[in-house]
């Protein structure tokens, strides 16, 4: 029997910046290469969260778009995403999506954009823009590489666990050395790049989590030839080490 998995791409039309779409491509391809049928459903403004999403993806956007999305996510829709995460659905969010999965984002001018509180974290607009290659060390995923480009500063609260510690780059806020957040199978971070194609171990963890969300018995994923993926991974790692 062919296994199936459904990827829910939140606001793909409005929030897809700095190549974030590459993450959806990576999930889809690595599922296909193992004979898993991966369907992608885009979830836009005004559209409810469909039942049966195994992996959510939510990318970054420009300011104008984030305001419209924050309105849309309030209420039942945000509640549906939060419940899915509680039931074990996998989720990857980056930059703007990550901010709205915390308690909210306070821009320079204008009202606070409310978030849905999957992560116990709060974000505010900062005075400078953090731009550059990033390397982090994560207890669960070892080394992850990406490219950050954000002026928002995120502070983790309470028991909220960071995705990892910053080795090169700025991370959540440039102060406490943390980057990203992880709760159950949900990840938020500032890592563009695109992130997943050059961190195949993270991609496979999301796929595995998504499959476990759908099926009661899931074998370990078949290993793939990841030579090109890790060539790109090493390449990004060396750039983050040498950048000024």
């Amino acid at each position: 029997m062919t296994m199936q998995i459904t990827i829910g791409w939140l606001y793909g039309a409005k929030m897809n910046i700095y190549g974030d779409r590459g993450n959806v491509v990576a999930l889809q391809q690595r599922a296909r290469w193992r004979g898993v049928d991966a369907q992608v459903q885009e979830i836009g403004i005004g559209e409810p969260v469909p039942a049966g999403i195994d992996i959510f993806f939510w990318g970054g956007g420009q300011d104008q778009e984030q305001v419209a999305v924050a309105k849309d996510i309030a209420g039942a829709k945000g509640e549906a995403i939060r419940e899915a995460v509680e039931r074990g659905a996998a989720l990857l969010s980056i930059c703007g999506g990550y901010q709205l999965l915390g308690h909210g984002y306070q821009p320079h001018d204008g009202e606070m954009l409310g978030g849905i509180g999957v992560f116990d974290a709060i974000s505010t607009a900062g005075p400078t823009r953090f731009i550059g290659n990033v390397t982090i060390e994560s207890p669960r995923f070892n080394t992850l590489v990406g490219f950050e480009n954000h002026s928002g500063l995120t502070t983790l609260q309470g028991d909220c666990q960071p995705l990892g510690k910053v080795v090169h780059g700025h991370g959540n806020n440039g102060r406490d050395g943390t980057e990203g957040a992880i709760y159950k199978n949900a990840i938020g971070c500032y890592l563009h790049g695109a992130l997943l194609p050059k961190n195949p171990h993270l991609t496979d963890w999301l796929l595995q989590s998504g499959l476990r969300h759908r099926y009661t018995e899931v074998d370990d994923l078949t290993p793939l030839d990841d030579a090109l993926e890790f060539l790109a991974h090493e390449n990004a790692l060396s750039r983050s080490r040498t950048q000024t």
Partner: peptide
Amino acid sequence: GIRGADMANRLKYAGVPL
């Protein structure tokens, strides 16, 4: 190029045979 490796990986995910 400096990021030739990223480019090669991009082509793989675009479905170009290895």
